[in-house]
């Protein structure tokens, strides 16, 4: 507990009581098929926090992330974006849970940048066009302003010289950096990373992690689902360990990762024992 207070005092804007969470999940349940993937998960990201969500495959961490921007609609529980509760309709009869207010969902998604494990760049568009799509069609910028915006973020991830390349002509690491630029070009309030390096060859993870680290250092609010333990330890203000659809442990990385309380996390951190 002492550590937690120390962390907050070093940056007053991180004070939990004072600030309102940028993004918050409250007691979220989600069943996919017949498998209960999330069984009552609460997680809040306060401004400038970097939260890493750890856990074995199938623990529900990706589903949690996807629930936060409604790519997956929770069966029950609440998602809050700042002071706004997202309109979610619970399952009814044969139909699963669904989005109640499509316009709200679009607006909130536009403020939550998402970076996917498999990049999901659009193959029929160049790097620049991939990044421009949001600024033009969602933010309503002119093509000229959108081009400038896209170039700015491509420069930021070090790929401005690849602006006219199609995804196929980029390495996995470069594709993921373009995907990060695409998310940034929406000027999002929160960035969500869904195992951003898991689909990459080991020698390509470095460039992507460097890009993510520099975003963390800028003070961006981020939630990062990852298997990169040492990276999570370095960049996170908080880590959450998930197991069996619940958050098993949560706290500052130096505390949670050095002195795991649960048997599950101990096993996860040191599978050899």
């Amino acid at each position: 507990m002492q550590t937690a207070i120390d962390i907050h005092s070093e940056n007053p804007r991180r004070g939990r009581a004072a600030a309102i969470a940028s993004l918050r999940a409250e007691n979220v349940h989600k069943t996919l098929g017949t498998h209960p993937v999330l069984r009552g998960v609460s997680l809040a990201a306060y401004p400038h926090e970097v939260i890493s969500v750890l856990g074995a495959s199938g623990s529900g961490k990706s589903t949690l992330l996807r629930c936060l921007n409604l790519l997956e609609v929770p069966d029950s529980g609440e998602i809050w974006f700042r002071d706004e509760k997202l309109d979610i309709r619970p399952p009814a009869g044969r139909n699963g849970a669904r989005i109640g207010d499509a316009r709200q969902a679009r607006r909130v998604r536009a403020s939550l940048g998402m970076v996917f494990q498999s990049f999901n760049l659009w193959p029929h568009k160049t790097a620049l066009e991939n990044v421009m799509e949001g600024p033009v069609h969602v933010r309503g910028l002119t093509r000229r302003a959108a081009t400038e915006c896209a170039e700015h973020y491509l420069r930021k991830v070090g790929l401005i010289e690849r602006r006219d390349h199609y995804p196929r002509h980029l390495s996995g690491g470069q594709q993921q950096r373009v995907a990060i630029a695409r998310a940034l070009a929406m000027e999002p309030e929160v960035l969500l990373f869904d195992e951003p390096t898991s689909a990459l060859d080991p020698e390509l993870t470095g460039e992507v992690l460097r890009a993510i680290r520099s975003l963390a250092e800028e003070g961006r609010t981020m939630i990062l689902v990852t298997h990169e333990l040492s990276f999570a330890r370095e960049v996170s203000s908080r880590v959450a360990f998930m197991q069996g659809g619940r958050i098993e442990e949560e706290g500052p990385p130096e505390e949670v990762l050095s002195r795991p309380a649960s048997a599950g996390l101990r096993r996860f951190l040191d599978p050899v024992c």
């Binding site: 790519l71 499509a102 998402m114 996917f116 929406m186």
Partner: peptide, 9 residues
């Protein structure tokens, strides 16, 4: 999903 995630309708 990538399209939805940036807020496209």
């Amino acid at each position: 999903e990538a399209a939805l995630s940036i807020g496209l309708a």
